[in-house]
Design a protein around this nucleic acid. Structure first.
Lengths: 199, 199, 199, 199
DNA sequence: TGATAACCGAGACGGTACGTCGTGTCTTGTG
DNA sequence: CACAAGACACGACGTACCGTCTCGGTTATCA
């Protein structure tokens, strides 16, 4: 993963079988009950092959998630920031529901005690989404829906923070109505008054 | 924990030794590397004794954390909401640093795939803090620092969400300056415009 | 084996099941194809239990063989040394046939590269047989069938050496007629001329 | 070995490197710890190349031993059978010492559960030595040092058996003095009385 | 003031999964 | 086309913890 021994020699068939098996097992058993042995057995692959290309169960699931790309809900741009953010946040929420079976929730859990996985998670999965988020914010700034000096780091934290706060403490992911209220507050925080500079 | 066999016969000495050992091992090895066997050995207690009183490693650490009470930084009330929230959030941040060794981070991780632990975490550790937070908010409302109709659920999510968002994706916990900006935005979101009712 | 953790707590049932499974599998598959995993599975026992009490597969089979005691053919004493040795050597030969399935042959093979097993094999299985052999020799000396100064170490090597020589080089274990000739020669070597002292 | 694919295309360089690596590793680690992977790595040769020409680790070591030829101590002929046999047996003993590192001991161990290797060992390494032994015995008969009807199979077993008996049960290979006594007994067995016919 | 029942330490037990190693086969690309 | 390099499926290794389960030995109510 970090340094594939020799990418050219890699068997595409095994690679794909592993990722498919990982997602299937996550769906059937929940991330927590998935094991590398189980993935290997389901994929018809030896454990050694998995260990050769991925450092941990989390790395496998992460790549599977990445390839499945169904997290890649791109930020819509209808011209209305509030509506677009609601669409986007709802997509993320459905991707995290139910927390007990959402592979991403499992990755978050493992990453909390595995710095290597944490790095992969951040760089491969999260950073690209943040970049897309920032693009959308900048378009909002151009369109005058957001103050041109709005702090985008703050924006990110305020929009997405509540989701993960509620996720980790099992407070229930936001319902649509609550989501609207939340977005309304965040946009207000970003547009009124004298905003600070982006970090 | 949920149903102690006979609370009266419980050995205080063993109980304390287990909790102390749990915290020591978390500090030394990190939550993830702590095992019930390790706790039992360190505490000079049999595994059976642990299983008699707690359902899981997480429950032990949770109770240890609860007794240690150093999370229980109560909300200060200097009359200035922004300053008090900064104090409070900084306390929580230091309690979560470094994430790889903070027992609470480990509990969050385990709770993501253990509904029983999730319930304990929410009810024993988090709900009381939320109650304290809401008390402080209500005082701010009485003092006119917050709109009397401010939505306190939203307030909670906006104040604390960014911490956990940054925690789970390893984006770095907020630095003091960033924290100030954040608080400034949140208070603005809660005070300007026409807020919605509390859920 | 060398230092049982706590013999009192040992489960007799598991102990017996392991030894029985070991012998069964040796008989079915041959010593070389027996694995600790296989023994554990057949015995309905965890691998850890085997590793707790025995250091190696060989040690298990050795103890099984020891308990089975069918190697323990005691030296007969009809008063005729040649006849008795033929009986005894034939018993050992049948115990080593066929070499590919005889557990003892497997033990010999493993012991050649495992000093710990070699020690167990020598002390538990072989030394007692040597002691019995020497008792029989001494009775022969008392009965005048053997020179009173006959060197019993030499006697042991001459009587049994040919068996193992033929075993290890797959020269075919001695047939009855050849065995008689052999015994005749050995007894002659031990009785004629001026023998040296026992070492 | 048994059926080389195409002896003409065989790379002499690889062939030699494999045999040299095999002997080096036996000397460094002991036969038991040598692996085909290790030999391939040391020799700078692919595993496939080894499997193409030899059926097993044992076959490689056997051929290496055969080529090294230092086992080929030919039977000396000073005219004194006892002295010559002592010289010869001492050479074999030194070749088997220490048993834990002697490649031949490893071959014997493997051959006990590998009929193919057993065949190679017997035919390539042992039969030629037996032939040399028998030549020497026949010269002894011609010189009157041995009865002309002495049974040479018996002679072989009596001379060499004790070595392997002591080897397999780790009773300690014979010391020089003991060796003399042994030879004395064997020659006596073969010369006195009325010997039986050769088989 | 015993009896008696719970808790206690110690740790063996059947399991599951781990991550590693070596096997023998197969594939790819080079000389 | 033999070769090196090494990926592959397989299977066993020996280890670590899990959660359950005896064991005797305190220990602390109650009879």
């Amino acid at each position: 993963m970090i340094k594939p021994p020799n990418p050219q020699r890699r068997s595409q068939k095994s690679h794909d079988a592993v990722l498919a098996a990982a997602l299937e097992l996550c769906a059937e058993e929940g991330y927590g009950r998935v094991t590398i042995e189980g993935i290997a057995a389901r994929a018809g692959v030896s454990k050694k092959t998995i260990y050769r290309w991925w450092p941990s169960k989390g790395a496998v699931v992460l790549e599977a998630l990445h390839e499945a790309a169904d997290i890649a809900a791109p930020h819509p741009d209808t011209g209305n920031l509030a509506i677009d953010m609601r669409t986007q946040l709802a997509a993320v929420i459905s991707f995290l529901s139910p927390p007990s079976h959402a592979p991403l929730a499992g990755l978050i859990a493992d990453a909390l005690s595995d710095p290597e996985l944490a790095g992969l998670l951040r760089e491969r999965l999260i950073r690209p989404r943040i970049a897309e988020f920032e693009q959308r914010m900048r378009r909002a700034q151009e369109q005058g829906q957001l103050h041109p000096d709005a702090n985008l780091d703050i924006a990110l934290d305020l929009f997405y923070g509540p989701l993960y706060h509620r996720l980790v403490f099992h407070l229930g992911l936001p319902e649509p109505e609550y989501l609207d209220t939340l977005i309304e507050h965040v946009i207000r925080a970003l547009t009124s008054g004298e905003p600070s500079r982006s970090a």
